[in-house]
Amino acid sequence: DILAELETTDYDADVVHSKANLARANLKLEMERKNVPREIDRARAELSEAITQRDFFKTQLERWNKLSKTSTVSPSDIEKAASDFESAGHRVERLRQALDLIIEPQEQRLKVAEADVAAAESDLTKAEWKRGNTVIVSPVNGTVLKKNVEEGNIVNPVAFNGSFSICDLADLSDLEVELDIQERDISRIFVGQRCMIRAEAFQDVPYEGFVSRLMPIANRSKGAIPVRVKVKIPPGMEGVHLKPEMGAIVAFYKKGEDDSKPPASTEPDGSEAAPNEADADPALPEPSTASVE
């Protein structure tokens, strides 16, 4: 279920900006794929033209050198032909280097364009993910215990003052009772031990349960060890008699007693019978008052 919806203006703008960047990166990649072969063809054509022009100037220079022996060509014409031939040679070399600069890095240019597309796609994915997070969905099936914000409030998880959470949520079918057992009695408590739990406000409504864990550190000031008791809530009874933060009374059963029996017997009408408090081990600690979590 949806718990809240946050303002999306900034995130919508980020998504639009990321889509534009992705479109630009794709266009650039497409242009690179089309333009690189064209640039190579144009550079080769210019190089071929320069080579032809150089060869022409070379032929002209050789012919005028032969004609100079008959004194029909002036020295200035020969010098000009030599200058044109040398310039054409330099132009050929320049165009050949320009062609190499296009051919050699063409693969790298395409990889750079493809990397830009990948980066734009990741930015778009991140922007859409952030926008999707503006819809706050409950992570578990549960009940809202407390609403901490109103419409228009700013929620900051790291704030010292103000709202740092939207609401308090709990699964009322998955409750535990935390209680302190004195160190002198802890040897008779073990994981999986059957228990009977009664809410202080509804002591005529018992619940089956079992010891789920013994905490790894003791409470020195109380001389006790924290123990968690898992409560078995019958279907349809969630939050009716046993609620978070309520006081509860827990009684423990003897080790090995009724191990072969189910946690609760079945009455002829199909309802579950409440455990008999007389079955509790009298040698165990007195029923302990604790809080429900």
Rank of each mutant, 00 (worst) to 15 (best):
D1P: 02
K19G: 03
L22I: 03
A23C: 10
R24N: 11
E30M: 09
R33G: 06
V36H: 04
V36D: 03
P37I: 09
I40G: 01
D41G: 05
A50T: 01
T52A: 06
F57Q: 03
K58L: 07
K58A: 13
T59G: 04
T59S: 05
L61R: 11
N65H: 12
L67E: 02
E79Y: 07
E79C: 15
S83R: 13
A88R: 11
H90M: 11
H90S: 10
H90T: 10
E93M: 09
E93S: 12
L99P: 14
E104Y: 07
Q106H: 15
Q108E: 14
R109C: 03
V117W: 15
A119V: 10
A119D: 11
A119F: 06
L124W: 05
T125E: 11
K126I: 04
A127G: 07
E128F: 03
K130T: 12
N133H: 09
T134I: 07
I136W: 03
P139Q: 08
P139H: 02
T143W: 08
T143P: 06
L145N: 03
E151N: 15
G152P: 03
V155P: 09
S163K: 03
I166Y: 09
C167L: 08
L169K: 04
A170D: 07
S173Y: 08
D174M: 02
D174E: 09
V177S: 13
Q182S: 10
R184S: 14
D185Y: 00
V191D: 11
M196S: 05
E200Q: 05
F202E: 02
Q203I: 13
D204W: 02
V205G: 02
E208R: 06
G209N: 08
F210Q: 13
A218E: 02
G223L: 12
I225V: 12
K230W: 02
I233D: 05
I233F: 06
G236C: 06
M237Q: 14
E238I: 15
K243T: 02
V250P: 07
V250A: 00
Y253H: 04
K254N: 09
K254L: 07
K254Y: 04
G256L: 01
D259M: 03
S260K: 06
P262E: 07
A264E: 12
E272G: 11
P275N: 04
A278M: 10
D279W: 07
A280C: 03
A280H: 00
A283K: 12
A283C: 14
P285K: 07
S288Y: 14
S288D: 01
T289E: 08
A290E: 09
A290K: 06
S291D: 11
E293N: 01
